[in-house]
Design a protein around this nucleic acid. Structure first.
Length: 939
RNA sequence: GCGGAUGUGGCGUAAUUGGUAGCCGCGUUAGACUUAGGAUCUAAUUCCUCCCGGAGUGGGGGUUCGAGUCCCCCCAUCCGCACCA
């Protein structure tokens, strides 16, 4: 019987489904293990070919862990809210829920064909009200908590209110807490809530009609669609993720992620230590030197250079500008500020090198030297970082240097590589930014090393009471509102313009139906179209907008939550997906703890993986999650690129296609993308090519060796380049097991690689050979196995076990190939070899393993088998062939007992006939002997 | 600019972590079996070579009896951040 994958694969998929083979319980005497994939966004294009790579790897690991006796949680679900479904809805009028449902069905079909061991009973969908109830619930908790800097954890906002109410200190504008109005109190609390509403500069994308988070904008363009994004001040919901910045940095030390991904997160969080310093404003103009009442705060990472400050710079948004600008400079400054504010983010980023700015006419006083220093406004200082104001040290900061050169401002050296030496900065071509060397021209810190000077200056500043040590983060709060339809509604209504949360027991607040998915005529988000979208505080339910009376019926929030809302806690929900009373039950989370292994793309490094860690830390603080970090080990699968094929059409004859090897000059031909499905190993299927497009129906060919050879290139995988490889096609052609093993064989999982089906035949051939091994075995034959076969088996067990533990699946596949090649040439292979081998193969090629497992006479699933142990006794060799080198150069081999000693080896080598030839008959200086490795003769 | 990674045959890759570089697969070449082959099997396949050997893991240097692997300096490619004070 031949290896008929198309028959056995559906058969066993059905078997697993019926037997509930992958059903997982939340309790077991077995040790627990949680293997998670990043759940996909179900796009209309079907399963992305990059996805199976990670899913196969995690499936192998999950199956392996199961065979090793673990209770393995390996769930799957859908990140079902998102922009594409909504964009599609705007174009076609199709409800996003409908298209999403269709796409999910298609994804499920594709996933099922690959034989994954997901427990589908635990499926979650972010757009399911039963799921997003808990997304909304978490939002309410965030709203009702603040971050206690002393305890370094989230605390109920009621605790803060208690503290404020008991305090004898005025809270706000000289008023005690009790004297403040409800509006004043609520506005004040907004400064502390972990989910808060505030006027903040946002990334506004007019084309998408929504604001975007920082990680959703790259180079001034939206990640989705690539539309321009502008900076705009808007009233938006945000998550105070910055409160957790330090913990997000610290937590990276506890997890088993790659250094590069940890580094990406560290850079994104951007922690920098330095000092905050108050600079007083000089009063009067001209030569007067007295200090005024006004002062402003700057942040610097180089307090040691404070003696080199020659000017100050404020960002164009700085609140002090209006106050300090002198009358004669007013017009100029206003013009500059207006210009800077209207500049789009894209323009600003494109013209980073261009220096611009304006003098305010005002001066500040250097608190350490008493010097008067001019204050400028420039957009190279950003409003969102530090205090939006800097002390400029042109000698030791490249941006200040460029600014100083442009405006002809003095440059003063205060750091030198060598002690007590200086050079004239006028001769410099660039600033000296490095934090090395010694302070010079710097008063009491002169002569100190940079590090010492930093500490000394901060000490001095603190002593003078004009500043302090501080830490700044690049990370910004996460903007949480989207002016879109297809997302979780905020459980928020507005009473007197003050936001209130919907009571927890009334959740979920279901997404209403709307007539249109576009913004309303008045520019409100799509939820503005919803007729039934007001909150009745008394009846505690959603009612018609027409009932709004501002006494008991109030308007509901019109924005929805962003994509990352639903994906930030889904891994916890899998632990207990049907719980209607809690996000997830206490016992469930106590049992599973956190994700042991998370597999997914590194492109989520600054988005999902930060938000999820924040989300988890918050849930940890409020006693829900039991681990501070959600993902213990993380493996990033590499990105899959496309491999495009080309045909070459002659420019002289538009109907003639020339095989690649026959082209003399590339200028004579036009390169045309050709569908990779009609190309096999770069050989074009001519008949199918003629059918492919009407214009190629009677194409003529110049062939080499009777074949048309196509060109190829690595490009982004895209429909327009005809290089999208659909997993279903490959499953139909070779079977899921071949595809699974081939994807692993391609190279290390972590490595980015082009998708290339050349070579899949080799893996398919291997599976056919593997199948054949079982053909002549009588399952009842208990005759003794050949030692050679057992040796191969045990080598394979050892190697494959090691490889899986190291997540090195490409080498496991090679190991299987060697094993099968060797066994194929041997006689006397029976159950004793084939049974363990079947189990070894089960994680990689589950269908064929299951079939053969049953052919060997087993009635239960191979998934319930036990991972075989290797026995050292089959691996030890009685003799070992030592390579003998002479001064490091390999010369000959000598066979010695495996357990031979240095002395025995030395004697054997010295007595060997070849040795004198290389030593010239002389006594060698030294003989290096490494057991089971090498013998080296040194002369 | 800053940070991270990678560089090995025609191609994807491997190398017991400092011990015979090129396993396994693709491709290629030759042969066998076949009416046929895009099936199957066998063999060869890093490069140069006067067939004695020699060179060789991006380039150069170093440590070592011995380096793809460790150290230093370059070069190239990819990724992340980017006026972050």
């Amino acid at each position: 019987m031949d290896y008929n994958y198309s028959e056995i694969e559906p058969k066993w998929q059905r078997f697993w489904r019926e037997q509930k083979t992958y059903h997982v319980e939340n309790n077991s005497a077995k040790p627990h293990f949680y293997v998670l994939d990043m759940f996909p966004y179900p796009s209309g294009a079907g399963l992305h070919v990059g996805h199976p790579l990670g899913y196969i790897a995690s499936d192998i690991y999950a199956r392996y862990k199961r065979l090793r006796g673990y209770n393995v949680l390996h769930p799957m679900g859908y990140d079902a809210y998102g922009l594409p479904a909504e964009q599609y809805a705007i174009q076609t009028g199709q409800h996003p829920a409908v298209t999403t449902e269709q796409n999910i069905a298609r994804y499920r079909e594709q996933l099922d064909k690959l034989g994954f061991s997901f427990d589908w009973n635990r499926e979650v969908r972010t757009c399911d009200p039963k799921y997003y109830k808990w997304t909304q619930w978490t939002f309410v908790q965030l709203f009702n908590h603040y971050y206690d800097e002393e305890q370094k954890k989230a605390q109920p906002i009621s605790e803060l209110v208690k503290k404020l109410a008991n305090s004898q200190e005025p809270v706000w504008e000289g008023k005690l807490w009790g004297e403040m109005s409800e509006k004043e109190q609520q506005d004040y609390l907004m400064n502390f809530r972990l989910a808060y509403l505030a006027d903040i500069p946002v990334n506004w994308c007019a084309e998408l009609g929504t604001v975007l988070a920082n990680d959703e904008v790259v180079g001034g363009l939206s990640v989705r669609g690539g539309y321009p994004v502008e900076r705009k001040l808007m009233r938006q919901w945000s998550l105070r993720i910055t409160a957790y910045a330090q913990r997000l940095v610290d937590g990276l030390d506890q997890v088993d992620w790659t250094d590069s991904l940890k580094e990406i997160q560290r850079n994104w969080i951007g922690r920098s230590e330095g000092a905050a310093v108050w600079f007083p404003l000089a009063t009067g103009s001209g030569e007067q030197k007295s200090e005024g009442d006004l002062r402003f705060e700057i942040f610097t990472t180089r307090p040691d250079t404070i003696f080199g400050v020659t000017f100050m710079v404020l960002c164009p948004e700085h609140e002090l500008i209006e106050q300090i600008t002198t009358p004669e400079k007013k017009e100029e400054v206003e013009a500059y500020v207006t210009w800077a504010k209207n500049r789009s983010e894209r323009e600003r980023q494109a013209e980073v090198k261009k220096v611009s700015g304006v003098f305010t006419g005002a001066y500040a006083v250097n608190p350490l030297t008493g010097e008067r220093i001019p204050i400028y406004v420039s957009d190279y200082v950003l409003a969102g970082y530090g205090t939006g104001a800097i002390m400029a040290v042109p000698a030791h900061d490249s941006r200040d240097f460029a600014f100083a050169r442009h405006f002809n401002l003095p440059i003063r050296q205060v750091v030198s590589l060598e002690k007590d030496t200086t050079s004239d900065p006028a001769t410099w071509t660039e600033s000296m930014d490095a934090k090395t060397g010694y302070s010079v021209n710097s008063g009491f810190v002169s002569g100190m090393k940079v590090k010492e000077a930093m500490a000394a200056v901060i000490d001095k500043i603190e002593e003078m009471g004009i500043g302090h040590r501080t830490v700044n983060f690049r990370l910004r709060d996460a903007i949480f509102s989207r002016q879109r339809y297809w997302g979780e509604p905020f459980p928020i209504y507005y009473k007197n313009n003050i936001p209130y949360t919907i009571p927890e027991e009334c959740l979920p607040l279901q997404l209403p139906e709307v007539k249109e998915f576009k913004p309303t005529a008045t520019g409100e988000p799509p939820l503005g179209h919803a007729e039934c979208w007001a909150w009745d505080e008394e009846k505690r339910c959603v009612v018609s907008k027409s009932l709004i009376d501002n006494k008991k019926v109030f308007p509901l929030e019109l924005s929805t939550m962003p994509g990352f809302a639903g994906s930030s806690g889904y891994y916890l929900r899998y632990m207990d997906p049907t719980n209607d009373n809690a996000y997830f039950g206490k016992e469930a989370v106590q049992y599973w703890q956190n994700v042991d292994l998370y597999v997914g793309g590194a492109e989520h490094g600054t988005g999902h993986l930060i938000y999820a860690r924040f989300w988890n830390k918050f849930l940890f603080d409020i006693g829900m999650a039991v681990k501070d970090e959600p993902f213990q080990k993380l493996v990033n699968q590499g990105m899959i690129q496309g491999r495009s094929n080309f045909v070459y059409r002659s420019k002289k004859d538009n109907n003639l296609f020339i095989s690649k090897g026959l082209i003399k000059n590339m200028d004579d031909v036009t390169k045309i993308h050709v569908d990779i499905n009609i190309v096999d190993n770069d050989i074009l299927d001519i008949d199918r090519f003629r059918q492919w497009r009407p214009e190629f129906a009677d194409a003529q060919f110049e062939l080499e060796n009777d074949r048309y050879v196509c060109g190829w290139e690595i490009e982004k995988m895209s429909k327009s380049m005809f290089n999208v490889q659909n997993p279903d096609d490959l499953v139909a052609r070779y079977g899921a097991d071949t595809l699974r093993m081939y994807e692993m064989f391609l190279g290390p999982v972590e490595q980015a690689k082009p998708w290339d089906t050349n070579g899949i035949e080799g893996v398919h051939r291997f599976l056919k050979k593997f199948w054949k091994l079982y053909e002549n075995v009588n399952p009842n034959d208990q005759s003794a196995e050949q030692p050679a076969a057992l040796k191969v088996l045990h080598q394979t067990i050892k190697k494959v076990t090691d490889d899986i533990e190291r997540f090195s699946f490409n080498t496991s596949v090679s190991t299987f190939m060697i094993c099968v090649n060797e066994l194929a040439s041997q006689k006397g292979i029976g159950r004793q070899v084939l049974e363990p081998l079947t189990v070894l193969m089960a994680p990689f090629a589950p269908h064929i393993a299951e079939e053969l497992w049953h052919q060997l006479g087993n009635s239960s699933s191979v998934c319930d088998a036990q991972w075989p142990q290797y026995d050292e006794k089959y691996l030890v060799e009685s003799t070992f062939k030592y390579p003998v080198s002479f001064n490091g150069k390999m010369r000959f081999t000598i066979e010695l007992p495996a357990d031979c000693t240095q002395q025995e080896a030395t004697e054997a080598v010295m007595n060997h006939a070849e040795t004198p030839k290389w030593t010239g008959g002389k006594e060698p200086k030294k003989i290096i002997f490494v057991p089971k490795r090498i013998i080296n003769i040194v002369c």
